[in-house]
Amino acid sequence: MIRYALACEAAHEFEGWFGSSDDFDDQLARGLVACPVCDSKAVAKQIMAPNLAGTKKNTPDLPWPMRSMVMEAMGQVRRHVEENFDYVGDAFAGEARAIHEGRSEDRGIYGEATPAEVKALIKDGVRIAPLPPAAPKKSEVN
Rank of each mutant, 00 (worst) to 15 (best):
I99H: 03
L52C: 05
G94R: 02
Y87L: 08
P60Q: 15
E72M: 06
N58T: 14
V77R: 03
F92G: 11
Q27H: 10
A44H: 08
M69E: 15
V37K: 02
N84P: 07
F85Y: 14
A98W: 07
A34L: 08
Q76M: 13
P60W: 11
P65M: 02
D90G: 14
C35I: 04
M74A: 07
N51S: 10
A91P: 00
R30V: 02
E83S: 13
V77G: 00
E72A: 14
A49W: 00
K57E: 14
A53F: 15
D90A: 13
F92T: 07
Y87S: 13
Q27D: 03
I47C: 01
A53Q: 13
R79A: 06
D25N: 12
Q76G: 04
L62Q: 07
G75M: 10
T59L: 11
E83V: 09
G54P: 08
L28H: 05
P36T: 01
M69Q: 11
E82V: 15
N58W: 08
D39Q: 09
K41E: 01
L32G: 12
P50T: 05
M74K: 07
G31I: 03
A93G: 06
M48N: 04
R30M: 06
D90S: 15
T59Q: 13
E82Y: 05
L52Y: 10
Y87C: 13
A29W: 01
A44M: 06
A29Q: 02
Q46V: 06
K45W: 00
R67W: 14
D61P: 03
F85G: 01
M48Q: 14
L52F: 09
K45A: 12
A34K: 13
V43P: 02
A44R: 13
A53S: 08
M66F: 13
A42I: 10
D61Y: 08
Q46C: 04
R67D: 15
P63C: 04
K41P: 00
M48H: 02
A29N: 02
E83H: 08
D26E: 08
A29R: 02
P50K: 09
M74S: 02
V37P: 00
D26Q: 12
A42V: 14
W64N: 03
D61N: 12
K41N: 02
D61V: 14
M69Y: 14
D86L: 05
Q46S: 02
R79W: 15
R67N: 11
S40V: 06
C38R: 00
G31Q: 03
V88Y: 01
V88T: 09
H100L: 03
M48K: 14
K56F: 09
E82I: 14
V77N: 04
G31Y: 03
D26K: 15
V43I: 15
G54S: 10
V81L: 05
V77L: 12
M74Q: 12
S68C: 05
T55W: 11
D39E: 08
G94W: 01
H100I: 04
A73H: 09
P65A: 05
L28T: 05
A96W: 12
S40R: 04
P65K: 03
D26I: 13
Q76F: 05
M66G: 02
R97L: 06
A42L: 10
V43F: 07
C35S: 08
S68P: 00
M74Y: 07
